[in-house]
Structure formats: C-alpha cells, structure tokens
Design a protein around this nucleic acid. Structure first.
Length: 307
DNA sequence: CTAGGATCCTGTCAGC
DNA sequence: TGCTGACAGGATCCTA
C-alpha cells in the first residue's frame, strides 16, 4: 500500500475536508471491500465526522455515533475527495494513496469500490484496483481491541504532529530492539516489515532505511548490535519524515506543472526502484534482488552482510 | 514459538 | 499482435 507516510498524508488532507461533514449515503460497489455487519450500518445513518486519525497504516474516521470507520489501503488503495460540482483540478479536491490515473478522471471508475456521499454534495471515493484493502466499522471503543491493532508495535515517532519530532524516544528504541530480538535467523528486512515489531514500515521505507543505515537487508537480525538497530530505526524515520514533508503520493505531487505525471519517489528515494542507476553515496550501480519474498533494492558496495 | 511460502486480486510490462 | 509469466508501496494463513 500506500505506506505510513502516504496514509499520514491522506490523514492530513482529509482532516480539514471531512471534519463536520455529515454522511448522506454510502454506495458499496464491491462487498469484499466493505466489511461491515448489517446491524452496524445504522450507525452510519446521518453520522457526522468528528475526527480523522491514523495508527500504523490504518486510517480511522471517527463518527458522532460512537462508531469509527477503519480503512486499510493495502497495495493499491486510494482515497479521493471531490467537492460538489467541482472541476477535476479544483484546489479544494484531494487525492492520495496508490498513484494511478484514477486521480485524474471522472469517478466512479472501474476500481471504485465504495462511495461516501455527504449532505453538501461532496463525495469520498475508495478506489482499490486489487481489492486487498478494506473498510470496517467498529464501535470507537473497540478499535484498540482488534487483534491487528492490539498486537502492533510502537509508532516510530508521532508523525501526526505538524512539526515531526526530531528524536525517537528511548522507550521506542528499547521496545523496538526487544521485539527484534524475538527473531534470530530471519533477515532484518523481513523483521522490520513485521508490524508487530514496529508499526508502519513497508517495502519502500525498509529499503530506504537499510540503505541509509548501510545494512544489508539479508543480514540475520541476530547479527546486528543494538547500536546498528538504533541507527536503522533513525534512518527509516528520516526517510519517512522527508516523504511526509514532501507531501507523500498526492495528486498535487503526481501531476507536474505541464500536466504530465511525475513520480513522487523522485522526491526522496535513494535506492527504491532505482536499479541500474548510481548509488547517491558512492556511485556504484544499484541492484535489485529478492529478500524476505519482496523486491529489494541495494547498493552492493555500501550494504554488505556482517560476518 | 519462529520461519518460509502460498494466497487474496487486477493490471502492466518484458520477452517470446 | 497475442500470449505468458513475473511482479507489484500488504498482511494473513498454512505448514514444517
């Protein structure tokens, strides 16, 4: 999916547009994407939005009915907000998540799964090409008790703050290290992708962080010192911070001034999807390989396996 | 308990 | 051009 910085970008963009909006109607085009019990649907009726939150890669929209809508965008989810009767390029509109042409066309299109209509005519589209993503509706007080939410590792820092904290707390470092130590043989990349170890790291920021920290992704977690792990967490945090501060993958950053489509990775990525290009640090050619079952980008000179 | 692989689904792209 | 297989910004489920 859309990783933590993208979900955080969505949270920021939707907060100012959704707070106070009253739901008029929900249209479900794909049942798999809308995992809501029939008896809970009454809590959507004429509900007003009172908050937009995020934990790890889960977006939460709080309603005044004491229920919360949960969104997981997985690999290809997008949220697209359109004001009533607006032109596609209206500045009040907003789109973020998996970057595709759906941001630039009339909706619904073939990957639209759920549509939220508001009283004032504005609409929120949940698009998801591969249908891995989901929307759930739970009593607000039950959200933290959900298995996935309850088992999540700590947030690296509070990325929801306008000014992202410069330092990771000692408590977070310690909890991260403690949870990494439950894994021995597994490659470090696979370990940091485990949401129970630390919340919110996905394939992009795993590769970016490992590159910045000069750690080979296939290094068995056991071989890394506490100092290595602290450096790695800092590096991931730096990469995520740069991404959020450049606006994540939003329509604004996807469409260039000449109307062509840009690549938001250009704004902060040093290795991700840059195979064949020069390592920004040493000039060696970046290669693509596979670690922990995922496509993995490394500089073979900067990142060597510790013996 | 951890580790590794298959799996959900649609679309795109490289290679024949 | 048309087909085929690999792969994709995630996480779960199954087996060993």
């Amino acid at each position: 999916m859309p990783e933590l910085p993208e979900v955080e970008t969505i949270r920021r963009g939707l907060t100012k547009r959704l707070i106070g909006q009253k739901l008029h109607h929900v249209t479900v085009l794909e049942n798999k994407s809308f995992q809501v019990e029939d008896e809970d649907k009454v809590f959507l009726k004429e509900a007003s939005i009172i908050g937009v939150r995020r934990r790890a890669k889960v977006l939460m929209i709080d309603l005044d009915t004491m229920y919360t809508l949960l969104f997981h965008l997985k690999m290809t989810g997008q949220l697209i907000f359109r004001e009533a009767d607006s032109e596609l390029d209206d500045k009040r509109n907003f789109a973020a998540g998996h970057p595709t042409g759906s941001w630039l066309v009339d909706l619904p299109d073939r990957s639209t799964r759920v549509i939220f209509d508001f009283d004032n005519g504005a609409r929120l589209f949940f698009n998801d090409q591969r249908k891995f993503g989901w929307i759930k509706l739970l009593p607000t007080s039950e959200v933290v008790k959900q298995k996935f939410m309850a088992e999540l590792g700590p947030e690296i820092v509070d990325f929801t703050k306008e000014k992202i904290p410069a330092k990771i707390s000692e408590k977070t470092y310690k909890e991260f290290i403690q949870r990494v130590r439950k894994h021995t043989k597994a490659p470090i990349k696979g370990v940091i992708l485990d949401q129970k170890v630390i919340a919110g790291i996905g394939n992009i920021y795993a590769d970016e962080g490992l590159w910045e920290a000069k750690i080979h992704p296939a290094t068995p977690a056991q071989k890394l010192s506490d100092k290595d792990l602290r450096r790695l967490l800092r590096a991931v945090k730096n990469s995520m911070t740069r991404s959020i501060e450049s606006g994540g993958s939003t329509m604004k950053n996807y469409v260039k001034s000449d109307g062509s489509r840009g690549n938001y990775l250009e704004r902060f990525a040093n290795v991700f999807r840059r195979e064949g290009q020069a390592c920004p640090r040493c000039g060696t050619e970046i290669i693509k390989t596979k670690v922990a079952g995922r496509g993995t980008h490394i500089c073979p000179k900067c990142q060597k396996i510790e013996e």
